[in-house]
Design a binder for these strands. Structure first.
Length: 875
RNA sequence: GGGCGCGUAGCUCAGGGGUAGAGCACUGUGUUCACACCGCAGGGGUCGCAGGUUCAAAUCCUGCCGCGCCCA
């Protein structure tokens, strides 16, 4: 083995090896229990960010864990076609060449997009591979694949047949930049500085004016009513009268509608049904005219007075406000923080716009999806996300699925000359429906990308074909995703999965934390605090990044990622590397057995129990999605137990003469190291695979396909455990005493111990060499009487110890040291005896708690006595 | 306004009725041969505040204060 641990060499070596060996392939263990995770498909335009790194680390940990446990694991990868984002990218490229998609035509444009996809679409997959993701890359799917497209068409047609997809004219969120409708979820509400413009509209045939306040004065050109609250006495006499709408020649009615809030502004409100969601409802209730004053660019159209036509929203606002002011209609401008809708991709203000679009009847589909979570068929982890899910599902709105784009699944609907719509899986079928000779035109629009993503857990497995994979891997086991797409994606997969497969798409939904920067700020390009996970991989290795992600992943708290953590876990890799190198130098190699080798030495029996405890902790933690606890358990065992104690404890044996004890120790050490490698493999796959082979003589199967440890906490040998605990405590106490007494590290000192208990004396005799070595001692000798002065003294486990250092020690310091220990012990005694003298405690507390307290009190009293005696000896 | 969550060591966070923990940082020290990306030893906390339940509260309950997120 190399003296230095270099992650990059190892990573380059093992990933292709695994991939070529077929280790990632699903379906290779036909007799085993299937375990399937579908990847949350990243955008084809995407590149790896820390959210992906976290999410995919966790998925890979689970997949590798279950693979090691013998399951037939399929991690299904792929990417989605990201309709708007991709079209943007390609249009930008075209613009740089002076081209416009509308000039080149749909077909040529789509060719261009596919070409872009072939060249640049693989970026994110390659980055996920750098992370070590053990997905079955040979099956990677794309939402625009032929098969997945077929699934989309089938779903659309069937939903339509069942009345769950319909075409409707209503207000949509219109993105004037991309000139497409978007769904509610793609709209961000942002609070911005705005105004309330107070306008005094003249009441027709009267001198009265009625004041309305609006945040969007330009929309007054489309007003078709003024509403007041039916109970509002101030306006009761005006209801039914008409207002002469300034700047236009129109007369609009004053109506009574509960939408008008008497507390808000003047209590009267202008109604623009074609440009506001609330007003739209008012308009429907009151049968108002709907005047659309904007075109698809959100510029004023021909329904407004000629003067304003062609103006943008912003220009129109200025002109309208100026004109109203000139007319004396504008009575007040009141600055106000207001909520404005923005497109999440375009960043422009969204316009509520009246158009024909396709909708999914989400309300109907939500019923079974809610029930599936209520009944526990699908569980959210952590469970509190279920509330979020219910809340949204119970208030779900129709889902607008049509987009005025070219890149995506074109809607399988054809229109006859009279506007009749024919929905069918192919043009031939549509023609058959329409009858021969009827000229058909296909709907130009495409579907929301999420419409195809909603089918991901079964479309990627081959549906609508009746494939063996669908049978075997659906429903999938676990979905790992972030909370921000519970609505976008999880809910919609639940709906379509239940509808088409009659079964939930996944049993557990693990909601990951959100990764923030080390100050706790959300990462964003504009803030410039984005951490590129590839930088960390390059600097510290993928294993270190993965381990960091896992160990920071706690349930219900955001992750603050800092470089020092990644560095620390790289150091952990180095530590393991060096420990393995030490093993190699001492003839310790990989084991051929799953079960522990026979062990007679206490230290070996002890470490077998310790790894058993660690294995149980890691296993249970992973089963409960406690990634932090699992990572910490293996970290602590490896560093704190195996390296710090076990390897030190076996050094004398390894350095000693050959024989049965040495053979046994080598076998146990090799076996334990193997267990570490397996337990750590899900978190640090590269270094563990490297060491797995480096330590083994001859060829062995890859670690990725090894078996998860079978030892558990019941491997603990109580006697060995007691003995080693004693040894460890004794060495620690010795080190403390000499450090506190400033005994130079290089000085070998002698220790006297006042000990009569047979078992301890036996332990001492048996482990003397170890204790001398690790405590830097010249000797340790049982004695009846401890020296009267000039010794550093300590008490441990009911025995008194002394390090005679005549003339060297500082008596004052030594007394202070013992006083400190005495004070600490007395404090314990007070607390314990206080509790035990409380009758209610003795009566009510569980027996073992009381017994424990009594036991401890006795020990503390014994300790106190010995400490006092030690102090007395100092004189 | 509705919902969710978080305040524990300097920092980042576990724990979740019965002895307050980890990593990093910090202080001291460095002994022979795995490792200074290291070893050994050590300091550091009225567990946000106030009530309540209990023999016992950091932990459960209520209220308050502070911070964050989601939805309207």
């Amino acid at each position: 083995m190399d003296k230095h641990y270099d992650p990059s060499d190892i990573e380059k070596k093992w990933f292709p090896h695994w991939e070529n060996s077929g280790a990632f392939k699903g379906g290779r263990r036909p007799d085993a229990q299937p375990y399937c995770i579908v990847i949350p498909p990243p955008n084809v335009t995407g590149s790896l960010h820390v959210g992906h790194a976290l999410n995919n680390t966790l998925q890979d940990v689970l997949c590798r864990f279950e693979r090691l446990r013998g399951k037939d694991v399929l991690w299904q990868p792929g990417v989605d076609h990201a309709g708007i984002a991709t079209q943007m990218v390609v249009e930008r490229q075209l613009a740089a060449e002076g081209l416009d998609r509308r000039d080149m035509g749909r077909e040529a444009f789509l060719e261009r997009v596919w070409k872009w996809k072939e060249e640049s679409g693989g970026t994110i997959e390659n980055q996920l591979k750098r992370l070590g993701s053990s997905a079955d890359w040979s099956r990677s799917r794309f939402t625009m694949d032929e098969g997945l497209s077929k699934a989309v068409v089938k779903v659309f047609v069937q939903y339509h047949r069942e009345g769950l997809i319909y075409r409707d004219k209503r207000l949509v969120n219109w993105d004037p930049k991309f000139r497409t409708a978007i769904s509610d979820l793609e709209v961000e509400q942002r609070e911005v500085d705005g105004n309330f413009w107070h306008l005094a509209y003249p009441v027709d045939g009267s001198d009265e004016r009625i004041i309305v306040a609006t945040t969007r004065p330009e929309t007054m050109l489309g007003d078709t009513a003024v509403a007041v609250h039916p109970e509002d006495d101030r306006y009761r006499h005006l209801v039914g009268k008409m207002v002469r709408l300034p700047l236009t020649d129109r007369l609009i009615p004053i109506i009574a509608d509960e939408h008008a809030d008497p507390e808000q502004g003047s209590g009267a409100v202008k109604i623009t049904p074609a440009h506001d969601f609330n007003d739209f409802e008012v308009g429907k209730r009151n049968d108002l005219e709907m005047i659309n004053i904007f075109d698809q660019h959100a510029a004023i159209n021909e329904n407004a007075p000629e003067k304003y036509r062609g103006m943008s929203r912003e220009e129109a606002r200025k002109a309208v406000v100026a004109d109203l002011d000139a007319l004396g209609v504008l009575v007040k401008i009141e600055p106000k923080r207001i909520m404005m809708p923005y497109g999440d991709r375009s960043g422009v203000v969204i316009e509520p716009w009246l158009t024909d679009q396709w909708y999914v009847d989400a309300k109907t589909l939500a019923g079974p999806a809610i029930e599936a979570v209520r009944s526990g068929k699908t569980k959210f982890v952590p469970g509190n996300w279920e509330k979020t899910y219910y809340q949204w599902m119970e208030n779900i709105q129709p889902w607008c699925i049509s987009r005025q784009l070219w890149w995506g699944h074109q809607i399988p609907a054809w229109y006859g000359p009279d506007g009749t719509v024919y929905v069918a899986e192919s043009e031939e079928e549509a023609q058959a429906q329409a009858g021969e000779g009827v000229a058909l035109t296909r709907d130009e629009d495409v579907l929301d990308t999420w419409f195809s993503s909603a089918l991901w857990p079964f479309s990627t497995l081959g549906w609508p074909e009746d494939t063996p994979d669908v049978k075997r891997f659906y429903p999938t086991a676990t979905l790992v995703t972030a909370f921000d797409i519970i609505f976008f994606w999880v809910a919609r997969m639940m709906m379509s999965g239940l509808h088409f497969m009659n079964e939930v798409p996944f049993k557990d939904v693990y909601i990951t934390s959100l990764v923030r920067d080390e100050k706790g700020d959300k990462m964003s390009k504009s803030k410039g605090n984005v951490i590129d996970p590839l930088d960390f991989i390059n600097k510290y290795g993928a294993d270190a990044l993965r381990f960091t992600m896992a160990s920071l992943e706690t349930q219900g708290r955001d992750i603050k990622l800092s470089e020092s953590r990644v560095e620390g876990y790289r150091n952990f890799g180095t530590k393991l590397w060096n420990a393995a190198r030490f093993c190699e130098m001492n003839g310790i190699g990989g084991s051929r057995d799953l079960t522990p080798p026979p062990a007679t030495l206490s230290v070996n029996r002890w470490i077998i129990g310790e790894i058993g405890k660690a294995a149980e902790l890691v296993t249970k933690s992973l089963e409960a999605f406690r990634f932090d606890a699992a990572a910490n358990a293996i970290y602590h065992f490896t560093w704190g137990t195996f390296c710090d104690w076990y390897l030190e404890l076996i050094k004398p044996t390894l350095m000693g003469k050959d024989g049965a004890e040495k053979d046994e120790t080598r076998a146990v050490a090799g076996w334990v190291l193997d267990q570490i490698l397996v337990l750590l493999h899900p978190f640090m796959p590269f270094i563990t695979e490297e060491l797995w082979h480096a330590l083994y003589e001859g060829d062995r199967d890859d670690l990725i396909e090894a078996r998860w440890p079978v030892v558990r906490a019941d491997a603990v040998d109580a006697e060995a455990d007691a003995e080693l605990t004693w040894i460890v405590d004794l060495i620690s106490a010795t080190r403390s005493a000499r450090s506190e007494a400033n005994i130079p590290a290089g000085a070998k000192v002698s220790v006297l111990v006042q000990e009569t208990r047979e078992e301890r004396l036996l332990w001492l005799a048996r482990n003397g060499d170890l204790i001398l070595r690790l405590g830097r001692l010249a000797s340790i000798t049982p004695t009846e009487y401890l020296p009267n002065k000039g010794a550093v003294q300590f008490v441990m486990d009911g025995a008194s110890f002394a390090i005679p250092l005549e003339g060297v020690i500082d008596l004052g310091e030594e007394r202070a040291r013992l006083d400190k220990a005495i004070a600490k012990t007395e404090k314990e005694i007070n607390a314990l005896s206080g509790r035990l003298s409380n009758e209610k405690f003795v009566a009510n507390a569980p027996d073992e708690v009381v017994a424990e307290a009594r036991n401890r009190l006795e020990q503390e009293r014994d300790q106190l006595e010995k400490l006092k005696a030690a102090k007395a000896r100092l004189g």
